[in-house]
Amino acid sequence: MVKEIERYGIPIIHMATIATISESVGANRIVPTVAIPYPVGNPNLNKEDEHTLRREMVKRALDALTAEVSGPTHFE
């Protein structure tokens, strides 16, 4: 589905814990996440650090949306 949406010119970010799966489904913009049970968070962090972590991940994803890519690219 990722490839089909991008074919219409709409950039897609695939946020996933296991990046190889993202590559196998054809994602071009891959943002690695934290862990399988908590992909975009870490319950072991305090409230402020958790907020910072999530903010950084969203910023990374937004930056990836504007990047020109020609194939699978990881945004660490």
Score class of each variant (00 low, 15 high):
residue 54 R to E: 11
residue 57 M to I: 15
residue 66 T to F: 04
residue 15 M to K: 08
residue 9 G to H: 00
residue 48 E to S: 07
residue 63 D to Q: 13
residue 71 G to A: 05
residue 58 V to W: 06
residue 19 A to G: 06
residue 25 V to W: 01
residue 42 N to C: 13
residue 74 H to L: 14
residue 52 T to P: 00
residue 42 N to Y: 01
residue 38 Y to I: 01
residue 37 P to W: 02
residue 24 S to W: 01
residue 57 M to L: 15
residue 15 M to C: 11
residue 19 A to H: 05
residue 55 R to K: 15
residue 32 P to L: 02
residue 46 N to I: 14
residue 30 I to Y: 02
residue 66 T to W: 00
residue 66 T to H: 05
residue 48 E to M: 06
residue 28 N to M: 10
residue 72 P to T: 09
residue 66 T to Y: 02
residue 28 N to S: 07
residue 49 D to N: 15
residue 46 N to T: 13
residue 57 M to K: 07
residue 52 T to S: 04
residue 74 H to A: 12
residue 45 L to S: 12
residue 7 R to I: 05
residue 49 D to I: 12
residue 27 A to I: 06
residue 22 S to E: 01
residue 7 R to N: 14
residue 62 L to I: 15
residue 37 P to R: 09
residue 21 I to N: 01
residue 3 K to A: 14
residue 30 I to H: 04
residue 7 R to V: 03
residue 32 P to A: 01
residue 40 V to D: 01
residue 64 A to E: 04
residue 6 E to M: 13
residue 73 T to K: 11
residue 23 E to V: 10
residue 50 E to L: 15
residue 23 E to L: 01
residue 20 T to N: 09
residue 26 G to I: 08
residue 38 Y to V: 09
residue 32 P to G: 06
residue 51 H to F: 09
residue 48 E to H: 05
residue 24 S to G: 00
residue 17 T to K: 05
residue 75 F to V: 12
residue 28 N to T: 10
residue 56 E to R: 14
residue 35 A to D: 13
residue 12 I to K: 06
residue 65 L to H: 13
residue 12 I to D: 02
residue 5 I to F: 07
residue 40 V to W: 01
residue 12 I to G: 02
residue 69 V to E: 04
residue 40 V to A: 10
residue 41 G to Y: 03
residue 16 A to R: 05
residue 6 E to T: 12
residue 62 L to V: 15
residue 30 I to Q: 03
residue 58 V to G: 00
residue 40 V to M: 12
residue 37 P to F: 07
residue 39 P to M: 10
residue 15 M to F: 03
residue 61 A to V: 09
residue 9 G to V: 11
residue 75 F to A: 09
residue 41 G to M: 01
residue 42 N to P: 08
residue 43 P to D: 07
residue 43 P to Y: 06
residue 22 S to A: 12
residue 3 K to M: 15
residue 63 D to M: 07
residue 69 V to D: 04
residue 66 T to K: 13
residue 59 K to H: 12
residue 40 V to F: 04
residue 67 A to D: 05
residue 60 R to F: 02
residue 71 G to R: 08
residue 70 S to F: 05
residue 70 S to D: 15
residue 3 K to G: 14
residue 67 A to G: 04
residue 31 V to T: 14
residue 68 E to V: 12
residue 50 E to T: 13
residue 16 A to M: 05
residue 50 E to I: 06
residue 63 D to V: 08
residue 24 S to Q: 07
residue 40 V to Y: 03
residue 51 H to Y: 10
residue 42 N to T: 13
residue 76 E to K: 08
residue 25 V to Q: 05
residue 57 M to N: 07
residue 61 A to C: 10
residue 22 S to K: 00
residue 46 N to Y: 09
residue 4 E to S: 10
residue 52 T to E: 10
residue 25 V to F: 03
residue 4 E to N: 11
residue 40 V to K: 01
residue 24 S to D: 07
residue 12 I to Q: 10
residue 2 V to Q: 03
residue 7 R to L: 09
residue 70 S to W: 03
residue 35 A to S: 14
residue 72 P to C: 09
residue 16 A to D: 08
residue 33 T to M: 08
residue 34 V to I: 14
residue 30 I to M: 03
residue 4 E to C: 07
residue 34 V to E: 06
residue 13 I to H: 04
residue 5 I to P: 07
residue 53 L to C: 12
